[in-house]
């Protein structure tokens, strides 16, 4: 273990995440705390858990960087960065060679293109509403009355041929209720909504270019149907890190480490390998996905292929 301890905190709209790394960038501990909304208490719990797991106190830290909507609320943070920079940095560390990071958080979604050095080239974010974000999936889960954790499996069992017009989280709920009133199958509804959200995400990707390899991060990456439909929409494999929710906090911790050293350093990725044994991937090669059981197996990565969507 290399000297120095660095904390990254990602205070998002619905969850607080904290990661502690050592001087080599190896992850020593991490935590994810679900909040109702941005909350100092939730943030502190995430920090305490991560520090406790690493056997540290705040006085042991050489640097702290915060990110996320609540980044300026984090006590002791020497610096803040936006989620854009941190997700790119953390994801590039977990999945070396990534060129496009799609992060779907609680209330926004982002498409970030990444350079060889793991830093941001370009980005686009949803610009006005919760369409295609974690909040949208929560609305769907509530409307079809399934736990959020079971939503993806439900969607993968259905047919995706229903028309879903609204991408407004509020009005989509009305549309879903109308479909239920028409006695449509809940699995078909869930599947169709996932397809529509993936199409919306594709529009976001079009603003920065469809580069590969693609990595999906954020809480929504834990939803296998979201990965499946995004892969189909992009016509490309979509890789999911084993712990996609902490990429922002991990990136923040790495930036704390980078900043403390003052100069770029080579990261010991063994820590990440231990923490994230093998990225999961889901490839779409144009075949009919209707029979897919949603099992996500490791796939191949196509390093360096660049396919600007607008050309």
């Amino acid at each position: 273990m290399t000297g120095g301890r660095y904390l990254g905190v990602d205070l998002g709209s619905t969850t607080a995440k904290a990661v502690v790394v050592d001087g080599a960038g190896k992850i020593l501990s991490s935590s994810v705390v679900t909040m109702g909304a941005v909350s100092r208490a939730g943030m502190q719990r995430a920090i305490d858990q991560a520090l406790g797991e690493a056997g540290l106190t705040e006085s042991d830290l050489q640097g702290t960087v915060s990110t996320g909507y609540g980044r300026r609320l984090v006590p002791g943070a020497g610096r803040t960065y936006t989620e854009i920079t941190c997700h790119a940095r953390g994801t590039a560390e977990m999945v070396p060679g990534v060129r496009l990071v799609i992060d779907v958080g609680g209330q926004d979604s982002k498409a970030i293109t990444v350079g060889d050095d793991g830093l941001v080239r370009d980005f686009a974010m949803n610009d006005r509403c919760a369409s295609g974000t974690g909040r949208f999936y929560e609305v769907l889960a509530r409307a079809v009355d399934v736990p959020i954790e079971g939503l993806g499996d439900l969607a993968l069992r259905g047919s995706d041929e229903l028309e879903v017009s609204s991408m407004c989280a509020t009005f989509a709920e009305t549309e879903i209720v109308s479909m239920l009133a028409e006695d449509q199958d809940v699995a078909d509804i869930a599947s169709s909504v996932h397809r529509a959200i993936a199409a919306r995400t594709l529009a976001l990707v079009a603003q920065v270019g469809r580069y590969t390899p693609v990595v999906l991060t954020g809480g929504v990456a834990r939803n296998p149907a979201a990965v499946h439909f995004l892969s189909r929409a992009l016509d490309a494999e979509v890789t999911v890190p084993a712990h996609p929710q902490i990429t922002g906090a991990f990136g923040a911790a790495l930036l704390a480490r980078d900043g403390d050293r003052g100069r770029p350093v080579a990261t010991d990725v063994r820590g990440a390998d231990e923490m994230f044994p093998r990225p999961r991937g889901h490839a779409h090669d144009g075949h009919d996905c209707s029979g897919c059981d949603g099992t996500l197996g490791p796939g191949t990565v196509d390093l360096g292929t660049v396919i600007p969507a607008w050309r």
Binding site: T80, Y81, L255, R263
Partner: peptide, 11 residues
């Protein structure tokens, strides 16, 4: 991986 920490904008 080698990176450069971008200049932090901080608050």
């Amino acid at each position: 991986m080698t990176t450069t920490a971008p200049t932090a904008l901080s608050a």
